[in-house]
Amino acid sequence: MIRYECFEWMAPLIDDHLVVTSLSGQRVEWGHLSNREGNLLLGSMGNALAVGCGLAMALPHRRVVVLESDGSILLSLFNLPTVANLGPQNLSVFVFDNQIYSGTRISEPTATAGKTDLEIIARGAGIEDAVTVRDLETFKKAALPALTGSGLNFIVAKVEESRGHRKIQRTNMDLLENKYRFVRYIEKTEGKPIFLGRG
């Protein structure tokens, strides 16, 4: 299983979800497959889960989808107990675990290539609905209720390293422009102001 085929399957299921991505190829691939106003493409590691958690708390009636990677989750493992205890019931976390620091050219293995199991860590942190999937069919079975239902879900998708994102043309929408688009989308769909300052 590769991440891109998971994304291809997920993209058409996105409706008014808010999708937060971490860095790396997934940001490029997701942005390419799903150019939606509800996308917040963060472009840094170790932030997506926490930002997604804050969003989910602020908008408890909206489904928030976080797209993470093993390297990024390992950089901010302290998020897991925090998210578990805050317990937002509208947050779906997908960790595409290729067991490699893949952006680094040298493809050094991450801890998940060794002894570390993110599902068990998540469960131990208190996220009960945590699963690991290893093929596309199982992924779909786990992901569908996470995208369409409720609850706090944590799906570790074991994927092969793929460098397909290097062939995709990257966006020239920078982080600030993405923020404005995202916030205006929330304002529009929630009918409330978020940016307060006026000139």
Partner: peptide, 12 residues
Amino acid sequence: SIAAGAALGGKQ
């Protein structure tokens, strides 16, 4: 980061 997410969702 959590505060940032909440801010984007409309909290102060």
